[in-house]
Every structure is written in C-alpha cells, then in structure tokens.
Simulated scan of single mutants.
Amino acid sequence: MKKITKIEYQKNNKDRVNIYLNDEFGFGLDLNIMIKYSLSKNMELDDEFISEILIAEDKNKAYNYAISILSRRAKSEKELRLKMSQKGYENEYIDFTIDKLKQNKYIDDSDYSERFILDKLNFSKYGKLKIREALYNKGIDKQIIDEKLILISSEDEFKRSYELAEKKLKSLSKLDSQKKRIKLYNFLINKGFEYDTVKKVVSELLKEEYNGFDD
C-alpha cells in the first residue's frame, strides 16, 4: 500500500494536480480524475487501484486531445482515429474516445457529411462525383454518402456547372471552338461533374460555335 502524502496544483495548469506517494512524486492527474476517485491526503492506495486511476487519466488525456482537434476543425470518425493513432494512442483509448464523443454528439459522420457537402457545393463548387470521392476518402459509410448526395438534383448540378463553365469560357475567348470545348470538358470533369451533365452544359454554351460537331 502507498499513502498519499501530498496533493498540489500544478504551477502552469490549475486544472491538474500532482500526487505524492510516500513523500515522493507519484503522478500527475486531471482535477476531475482526482475528484472522481475521491483522492485525498493520507488516503492509502494499492497497486491495482493506482493502475485503475492511471488508466482513467490516460483515457481522459485521449478524450481531451480529440476535443482539441475537433475544436479547430470538424473531422470524420476515420480522420480522428488516424490523428489519434499518429499521436500514439492505443486502440483501446481511441475506441473509448470515439464512443464517448458519439454519446456527446461531438462526432457524427452523417452531420459531418451534410456540412462537408454544403461547403463543397457553395465554396469549392464541386460536382457530385468529386464530393463522393472526397467523402469516401474520409471514411464515410457508402450508405450515408448515397443518402446525402441523392438530395442534390440534376437540375442543381446543371445550373452550378453551367455557371462555372460560363465564367471559364470568358478566359478562353482566343481559342477556336473545338479547343474551347475540350478545355470546358476537362474543367468540368475535374470539378467532379458527371459526363452527361458536362456534355449538356458544353453543348448549350457552344451550340452556335460548333453546331453539327460530332459528339
């Protein structure tokens, strides 16, 4: 058994304390962990109890690290797991953290996907194919991706791609019709629009210039 002989606040972080056992430094703890286990001076601890406390401290560190990551930028579950793994956290602590974050509604791939899609539609001007690929790479479940992207109508895709192509066309004024067409195709395909949408948009924009051109 080891006795707690001193508890002091850490100088640079009043949310943490140092625990001294038998007049020697034992370990540092988050204040909430100390309160959870009702630690106090002269309390005696066996090795099993100390091990339980330290595991709780490690889990708390993992959770706080994840919160700090999410406070800077939203992440998918896969992205957060990768970040924690790269930081050196064991799978046990990563699983614990992810479960707790889900319970507290701090991480939700469905909600994340909605916000990601809106951002890419409104600011990056991506087409559905590029958004799908990006979400897949972030580890979002295929069912979630399908559910969210089905809400984007073909009319919306056409309108956005048309506006992009119309703006792009202004920078291609010195090219002949065929080169303009190729440039517009490549531009819209790289943005992630489906081929049928791209074909329709380019045809609308350049119909007078290459009318009768064999598709």
Rank of each mutant, 00 (worst) to 15 (best):
D215P: 10
I19V: 08
I55M: 13
I182A: 08
K138G: 08
R73M: 12
Y89M: 06
I131W: 00
E155F: 10
L82C: 10
G88Q: 08
N104L: 14
E166P: 02
S68W: 00
L121E: 00
A165S: 03
L205N: 01
I152D: 01
I189E: 05
K59M: 08
D47H: 12
E208T: 11
K59W: 02
E163G: 05
I55L: 15
K125D: 01
I140G: 03
S154N: 14
I94A: 02
N137C: 04
N211M: 14
K125L: 05
K130I: 02
E163W: 01
L188G: 04
L172I: 02
K199P: 00
G28V: 06
S177N: 05
L206K: 01
D58W: 06
G192P: 02
N190L: 06
S38P: 03
N13V: 02
V202M: 00
I144P: 03
D30Q: 14
E163R: 06
R72E: 13
G88I: 06
L80K: 09
D30C: 07
L54D: 08
N42Y: 08
I35Y: 13
Y93E: 08
K170I: 02
L129K: 10
K168W: 04
L151Y: 01
Y136M: 12
K170T: 05
N137F: 09
S40K: 15
A56M: 03
R72V: 09
I98Y: 01
S173R: 11
K130T: 04
F123I: 12
I19G: 04
M84H: 04
I53R: 10
N64M: 09
G212N: 12
Q178Y: 10
F49M: 11
E204Y: 13
L121R: 10
Q103I: 11
Y195H: 09
Q103F: 05
Q86W: 12
S203L: 03
K167E: 02
Y126F: 15
S110W: 11
F187N: 03
F158R: 02
K6C: 07
S40F: 13
L118P: 00
N12P: 00
D23K: 15
K36H: 12
E166N: 14
L129M: 14
Y89F: 13
S51P: 03
Y37N: 12
K200E: 11
D111H: 13
K200I: 05
S68G: 03
T197I: 15
Q10V: 15
S171W: 01
M1G: 09
L70E: 05
Q86M: 14
R132A: 09
K83S: 13
G212I: 08
D146M: 10
E204M: 04
K159N: 06
K78F: 15
L45M: 11
L206Q: 03
R115M: 14
N137Y: 06
Q178R: 11
F213P: 00
V17A: 05
N91L: 07
D119Q: 10
I55T: 13
S171F: 04
K3M: 07
S71M: 10
E57Q: 15
N186W: 00
N42G: 05
E48K: 13
L121T: 01
Y126Q: 09
I107P: 06
Q178P: 00
Y162I: 01
D15V: 04
L184N: 00
E24C: 07
N122E: 13
I117R: 04
A74R: 11
E48Q: 08
G212Q: 05
Y20L: 04
N137T: 07
E208H: 10
E204T: 11
